[in-house]
Amino acid sequence: MSFRQPIWLLLAAFLGLSGCAHPIAISPNLGELPHTANGPPIQKKVGYYISDADRAKMVKSPGGGGDFVEYPLYANLEPGLYRALSNVFANVSVIKDKNDIRALTDSGVSLVFTPVITTTSSSRNIAFWPPTDFSVTIVCTATDVNGKQIWETSVTGVNDLTSVSTVIHDFGVTGRNASEAALRKLQKALEDAPELRQ
C-alpha cells in the first residue's frame, strides 16, 4: 500500500465523502397535524402497536455524493401516528403486546393499528449529503382484539426537490416534510373508512 492511500481516505473522511451514514431526524412538525376543532369524530378506544425492535431500529437510505442518511424511522414517526389516531379516535393507547387478547379486552381497546413504514431518499447534488428528495410510505392495518384484520391502507408522502441552500441548514427537512404529508394522508384515510366506525 502506498502512503498516498491513507491520506486520500482521511481527506475523504473529513469532506464527508466516505460513503458514511449521516444521522438526521425526520420527526414531523405536529403543527402540521393540528388537533381537530370539534374533537375526534369516533368515540372508541383504540391502540397502536410498534415493536421494541422497530422502535429502536435505525434506517439507512441514500443521500448525496455517495453518502447515506440514517434515522430512527419508527421512533421519529410514532408521535405523528399517535396524533393522527388521536384526531380520529377519542382514546388512544400504546399497546405492548397485540396478541394479549385478555389485556386488550380488559383495557377496552376495540381496534389495534399496526404500521409498516418504509422510505426512499436521494440527492440531486453530488457535493452535499443531505437528501433533496424523500418519500415516506405507511402501510397501516387495523385488527380487532382477536387479531382479525378489518382494514388496511397504504399512503405515501413525497417531498420532491428541496433546494440545497435549505437542506444544508436543516438536514432532515425533506424527510420531515414527507413524514407530515404521509401522516396527513393517513389521518384522512382513517376519517374516511366506514369499517372503523362500526
Partner: peptide
C-alpha cells in the same frame, strides 16, 4: 465519530 460530518449531525439529532 471523529469525523465532524458524522459527529455534528448525530449530536444535533
Amino acid at each position: 465519530s471523529f469525523v465532524g460530518a458524522v459527529a455534528i449531525p448525530r449530536a444535533i439529532t
